[in-house]
Design a protein around this nucleic acid. Structure first.
Lengths: 185, 185
DNA sequence: ATGAAGTTTCAAAAATTTCTGAAACTATAG
DNA sequence: CTATAGTTTCAGAAATTTTTGAAACTTCAT
């Protein structure tokens, strides 16, 4: 009934790799493999096809899809005359890049920023606290600056961004030169 | 004997936060907490002080330090007339930022790049494989470009970088404007 | 309303990761 | 060389995370 999308050695390697890397990227094996599969699939897949292809239980796939959707790395769609839910990965790789950056920021950076903001409001009571707070302030400033900057870069269109990156090498040369003149690095 | 560096509510909150976030950042609670403690400590600490302050076993701290050193987020030093090993976190927050980016790239990006390079050398046997490979090529190109660019940015001195980031807002406005003229986003 | 097709939830099993204490190891002072 | 202060390793215990199957739920066509 379900066309278990066959994995060739080539595609299997890709899928397994994403499964293994998953833990380093903060998702589990199931989620990593599902994403990889959707990424290379020429057509949207339904949950049963995914489960069968990857050899996971149906419920595991359901959990995994929930997680992938929360990362906005998969979207849901329906085919006319078919009640099942189909999934696909966003096609545009720049869009994926942005989405990922946004989500990572929300989950991995924002909570820390807000903890730091709170901590910086307290009145330090001892020398140690004063020192600790000064360090926290440095950290806060760097993160804030980096995220503001990243925001701005992110708002650029892929074309512009691509251009900027290609330009990067040149900018770097000039700046690297002035750095040397000023005796830094 | 060991001056268990007392944690005040302020510093404790910081340390516990890093412990909790650890898992999202790819390290365990112990490692997260140790790093936070070293980061705000006004003086280098020895392993026993760390273990006592945080309430971890001595061996757990030993493992944690090994991991932190492998991330280059802690360095070892000795005090005259004291045989114990002392640890401190790098002070310069820009340096930390770079180190982290380098290590993350080595662990989270390079393996994928090399898998992709291999996969792209294969001759696709079917339509599905041809499609999969095309997707992989897109992914490979994006990652490659992003890392090359990041490399370059990373080579800049903190001062230059800081200046560039502050400049960012202006660049963005100009570019955003041209984008609009060209009808992109 | 009923039932068939599909999806989600959830408690428990399986797997993995983290943490510990004891033993092994290392280096140095005497 | 020996005793001691310190560090690392490692096998098992504890904790956490992942995965599953069965039951509950939802939706829609009849």
């Amino acid at each position: 009934m379900n066309d278990k999308m066959e994995l060739t050695p080539l595609t299997e390697r890709f899928v397994l790799h994403f499964g293994e890397m998953g833990s380093r990227w903060g998702v589990n094996r199931t989620v990593g493999q599902i994403y990889a599969l959707l990424f290379i699939a020429p057509e949207p897949l339904n949950a049963d096809e995914i489960a069968e292809t990857l050899g996971f239980s149906r419920s595991n796939v359901s959990m995994g899809m929930k997680e992938l959707m929360s990362w906005r790395l998969a979207r849901l769609l329906h085919r006319p005359g078919d009640r099942r839910e189909y999934f696909e990965a966003p096609k545009d790789i720049w869009e994926i890049f942005r989405t990922l950056a946004e989500e990572k920021r929300k989950r991995e950076i924002e909570p820390t920023l807000s903890m730091l903001r709170d901590a910086l409001l307290e009145i330090p009571q001892t020398d140690n606290e004063r020192h600790a707070q000064a360090r926290m302030r440095e950290m806060h400033e760097l993160i804030e600056m980096a995220t503001v900057w990243f925001d701005e870069v992110q708002r650029l269109s892929p074309e512009t961004l691509e251009g900027l990156m290609r330009l990067g090498a040149k900018v770097q040369k000039v700046l690297g030169f002035t750095d040397k003149l000023r005796g830094k690095d």
